[in-house]
């Protein structure tokens, strides 16, 4: 079972964890949250844009790829768009599985692929103005461990 959500509202972590926790045959629930980091208090907010029709397709494909690699049960990917302030969460990934190694690997895999393939773009509002966030070399390098 999958939950894929892209919307503007704050992420309801409690209900996601409750859903991930439900299956009695799963011994592991791993979650990751990415949040807006304000480096030296410079970043006030981020505005996230996306390509709606493509986003859901890409996120669904990432989960399908993960299901081909690991024995996992429930997977939730929730990504916010619109304006998000410093210290608020941007993305939630949660995975349930019989065993923790599959849940840990899937969570990391999903984030690594999402960072490089899901069509989201961040514009940063800082104390000195606005700018588009540049893609990082380190995110591209992170793919190497999976392919």
């Amino acid at each position: 079972m999958n939950i894929i959500q892209v919307n503007q509202s704050p992420i309801d972590v409690n209900s996601l964890i409750t859903w991930l926790y439900e299956s009695p045959t799963d011994g592991a629930v791993v979650t990751f949250m990415g949040k807006v980091r304000s480096f030296e208090n410079q970043v006030i907010s981020l505005t996230l844009e996306h390509y709606p029709e493509m986003t859901e397709k890409v996120l669904g494909n990432i989960i399908n790829q993960a299901r081909g690699r690991w024995a996992i049960n429930r997977v939730a990917i929730v990504h916010r768009v619109g304006k998000i302030y410093a210290n608020e969460s941007i993305v939630f990934v949660g995975v349930s599985a019989a065993h923790r190694s599959d849940a840990f690997a899937t969570t990391e895999f999903i984030m690594d692929i999402l960072k490089n393939e899901a069509p989201f773009w961040k514009k940063e509002q800082t104390v000195s103005g606005q700018n588009w966030v540049k893609a990082k070399e380190s995110d591209l390098n992170a793919l190497k461990k999976w392919y």
Binding site: G34, L48, K115, A118
Partner: peptide, 10 residues
């Protein structure tokens, strides 16, 4: 057809 810069989500 869509054109866009490298993605920066997550």
């Amino acid at each position: 057809i869509a054109f866009f810069p490298p993605v920066t989500g997550g």
